Computed example of a mutant assay.
Amino acid sequence: MAARETAYAKINLALHVRSRREDGYHALETLFAFVDQGDTLSASPAPADTLRTTGEFGQEAGDPFANLVTRALGKLPRPGGLSILLEKTLPVAAGLGGGSADAGAVFRIVRDLHGLPDDWRDRAASLGADVPACVESVTCIGRGTGTELEPVASDLADTPVLLVNPRLPLSTGPVFAAWDGADRGPLPTGSVREIALAGRNDLEAPAIGLQPEIAQVLDALRETDPWLARMSGSGATCFALYSSTDALDRAAARLARDRPGWWQLQGRLRP
């Protein structure tokens, strides 16, 4: 039986870095949200697991044996293999959890076809801190390294969102390494909207230090009258939230005209 899943783009409505941990990771508090657009994975039964990539960013997805799709398949016991076609429309190393979202989609495909083992959350976390959140792809709060998840009811479902990336890859490691180590306080409390508005992204400044064009993206987004514009994750993608679809359409058209070289994606926030 064939299966098809969208690997929903992940954004961090807020990302507070609290401390460096002894194990080398960072203690985080983040508000995850997901856009209703992303990569597409099509799967069909096969004698062995295989992966083929297409799409605008397909060539940037890397060695199939290192790709998170292949690694996710290796974490999940099941009868027989799966042949997966990955249409890669999200940029790589972009702060959108693209690889993690792809892995999350694999977990959902296997769940629907065969079911998941009871310890699937641990298996997902072993692939990356964002993967457990990406399996469910719903708004939630992440703590610890981002794997300790707390579900929240979102008052931002269906909010129009614009994602913009200056087509500059930015690896997570150097951004965290450039963080100044200052604890600027915990994630706010309240509704999802209130947390997003009162929150911040502590990786924004170090990311801009490494890729100054991120600041230009944020400035351009803020000129389109969103009610919130912020960098996602460790960058370089930034997002803007709008009060109406018309406002989103105007913003997207303006940036397409003024910055034709930038990548953009329009969508709505999932619940």
Rank of each mutant, 00 (worst) to 15 (best):
Y8Q: 05
L13F: 09
A14L: 14
A14T: 15
H16F: 06
S19A: 15
D23V: 02
A33Y: 01
F34E: 09
V35G: 04
G38C: 06
T40W: 14
P45A: 12
A46G: 11
T50K: 02
L51Y: 10
R52T: 15
R52Q: 11
E56M: 13
F57M: 05
Q59A: 14
Q59G: 13
A61F: 10
A61H: 07
P64R: 09
A72F: 03
L73E: 09
L82G: 06
I84P: 00
L86S: 02
E87I: 14
P91Y: 00
V92C: 12
A94I: 01
G97R: 05
A101G: 12
D102T: 05
D102S: 04
A105R: 11
A105S: 12
R111P: 02
L113H: 01
L113F: 04
H114L: 01
G115H: 04
G115M: 02
L116K: 02
R121D: 08
D122A: 14
A124T: 01
A124P: 00
A124C: 00
S126Y: 09
L127N: 13
L127R: 13
G128Q: 08
A133V: 09
A133Y: 03
A133M: 09
R143S: 12
G146N: 06
G146L: 04
P151Q: 10
D155N: 14
V161Y: 09
L162S: 07
P169R: 11
G173H: 13
D183R: 03
G185L: 06
V192L: 06
V192S: 08
R193I: 01
A205W: 00
I208P: 00
Q211S: 13
I214R: 00
E223A: 15
P226L: 07
P226F: 03
T237I: 05
F239A: 09
T245Y: 00
L248N: 08
L248E: 06
D249I: 12
A251K: 07
A252W: 01
R254D: 12
L255E: 01
A256R: 15
D258E: 15
P260Q: 04
W262F: 02
Q266A: 14
G267F: 07
R268T: 13
R270V: 13
P271D: 12
